[in-house]
Each structure stands twice: as structure tokens, then as C-alpha cells.
């Protein structure tokens, strides 16, 4: 065990943990966050995604020691039900989820992608989102929501 400092959603947390623990476990079990989800546990599905310095990172295969001191943002950190981030608002307006389990990864991956590629075409967005899995097949609505978010975030 060793003492680590984590900066999550603007708050600093001091944690005494095994430094090789997956970041996801720390976020879920120690910090009680419900945004990042355990999906495959292999970094393949995307449901555990968090933003580290604005980049979409799969927290289930990220050792917590590698992100200490870096700015970590989870789905909760983007916005709230009352004050959603524009991209969350777009997903709510397009009703772009069925079971919602993958939604964390979809929204955060899209956010990181649009921040980097604010003028992305539909095809580029599709390619950028291709590694996030949704078993409910809600892709059409999700792409619509991301397109809507692109317009909103450009303004």
C-alpha cells in the first residue's frame, strides 16, 4: 500500500491503496462514483472510460499510480441532472440510451473526440466512436446526439 493523491472532478483525494489497483476500482469502490462502469474489464468495451487531462482513458486497465496528480473527470464531473453539460443535454434530448450501461463511455469518448475535432464530419465521428460498444444498438440515436452536441459546443 502507498499513499496516493488523486484529483477527481476538481477534488483532491488522499488514498492509501495498492498503486497497481485499476483506477476504476478506486473510483467506484473508494470514491463511490457511479458514472464509470465495469463492463469487460479488459479495456475493450469502453464503459469504464474517464477523462485524464481531457483524454478518454479506460480506467479498468489503468493502474491508479499512473494517473496520480493528473486531472481526472468522470461523467459526474461533466454536469448534473439540473445543469447538464451540453453533450449530456444532447443525449437527454435525443433520448439516446436504452439500458444506459455504456452511456458513460459513449458520452466521455464523444466529449474528448469533439474537443479535439470540433469540426469532425459524420464519418469521422463514427470512426472516432467505433471502439465504444453498445449492446442495445442505440448507435443511430447516439450519433444524432453527438451531432447535436457538436453544434451546441461549437457555439
Amino acid at each position: 500500500m502507498s499513499l496516493l493523491s488523486l484529483n477527481v472532478n476538481g477534488q483532491t483525494h488522499s488514498l492509501d491503496v495498492d498503486p497497481t489497483t485499476p483506477l476504476l476500482y478506486i473510483l467506484s469502490d473508494d470514491l463511490g462514483l457511479r458514472g464509470p462502469k465495469f463492463g469487460c474489464g479488459l479495456g475493450q468495451c469502453g464503459s469504464c472510460t474517464v477523462l485524464v487531462k481531457g483524454q478518454a482513458v479506460r480506467s479498468c486497465i489503468t493502474a491508479v499510480e499512473t494517473v496520480q496528480g493528473l486531472e481526472i473527470v468522470t461523467l459526474e464531473g461533466l454536469g448534473t441532472s439540473d445543469k447538464p453539460h451540453p453533450i449530456q443535454k444532447a443525449f437527454i434530448e435525443e433520448q439516446a440510451a436504452q439500458c444506459g450501461f455504456c452511456l458513460n463511455g459513449v458520452i466521455l469518448t464523444a466529449k474528448a473526440f469533439l474537443d479535439k475535432n470540433p469540426k469532425a464530419t459524420e464519418k469521422e465521428i463514427e470512426a472516432g466512436m467505433s471502439r465504444v460498444l453498445c449492446r442495445c444498438f442505440t448507435h443511430t440515436r447516439m450519433l444524432r446526439a453527438i451531432g447535436r452536441a457538436k453544434q451546441g459546443m461549437a457555439r
Binding site: L33, R34, E76, P84, Q88, A97, G100
Partner: peptide, 10 residues
């Protein structure tokens, strides 16, 4: 339930 799902509070 949509807003809660989109903001990680579900």
C-alpha cells in the same frame, strides 16, 4: 431516468 443515466447518478 434519462437525465440520471447521462450524468452518472442512476
Amino acid at each position: 431516468d434519462m437525465a440520471a443515466m447521462a450524468t452518472g447518478t442512476f
